[in-house]
């Protein structure tokens, strides 16, 4: 919807993007990292962090030369800064426009009001002032960390890079992402957030 009509560069930076533009831009990241000689994937950074903690002495999985991963650390510092720039310089006061059906479901099933957390996060529930939220955060993070490392990749490595290279293991892994996501959303989450 933001692709039609006359738009200024600033408007593109301030407003949220249509999914077509977003998809093309994510593919651009894939090409940039490929051109720079590395494979696009974020979850390998968890392994790099463990290596930096000195766990390489104890576990073979973390025993590698961290100098090969300096690029990833530079990339990640950039990602953090990119998030900061988005929140401060490119801040968009309009909350994320999710569907009316989802808003109704959040209200009816969870008792949540929308918008909250800039439309990025249910921050009324998931904030660091609640032990339940911290527990959920650690548990969710644990599954993401374990699953992505066991599966050798996350959404960027398998869904974007892997599928772009048409790799069968990536396709099966992405199917797994959805099996897990659907189980959590439909079967488990009602017991966590439901009223």
């Amino acid at each position: 919807m933001y692709l039609s009509g006359s738009i200024s560069f600033l408007e593109i930076l301030e407003k949220p993007w249509h999914w077509t533009l977003s998809g093309v831009m994510i593919a651009l990241i894939l090409f940039l990292l490929t051109y720079l000689g590395r494979s696009f994937g974020v979850s390998a950074s968890f392994r790099t962090i463990c290596n930096a903690f000195g766990l390489g002495k104890k576990y073979e999985y973390f025993d590698f030369d961290i100098r090969n991963d300096f690029w990833q650390i530079a990339f990640l510092i950039g990602v953090l800064l990119g998030g900061y720039i988005s929140a401060v310089l490119l801040y968009n006061p309009e909350p994320v426009r999710i569907s009316a059906a989802t808003i109704a479901h959040l209200q009816q099933d969870f008792g949540w009001t929308y918008p909250q957390g800039d439309g990025y996060l249910p921050s009324d529930i998931l904030n660091i002032y609640s032990w339940k939220a911290i527990g959920i955060a650690i548990l969710g993070g644990f599954f993401v960390g374990f699953g992505s490392r066991y599966g050798n990749g996350c959404t960027s490595g398998h869904a974007i890079t892997g599928l772009s290279h048409m790799r069968l293991p990536s396709l099966i892994t992405v199917i797994g992402f959805f099996i897990g996501g659907l189980i959590m959303t439909w079967l488990i989450m009602p017991y966590i957030f439901g009223i």
Partner: peptide, 28 residues
């Protein structure tokens, strides 16, 4: 692939963020 993917998906749906967004949202 299925086992690892499913475990990842459970966490992805719960916290609503995969590894990339975890760092981006920290930046936010």
């Amino acid at each position: 692939h299925i086992l690892a993917g499913t475990i990842f998906g459970l966490g992805w749906a719960l916290i609503g963020a995969c590894p990339g967004p975890i760092y981006v949202l920290l930046g936010h």
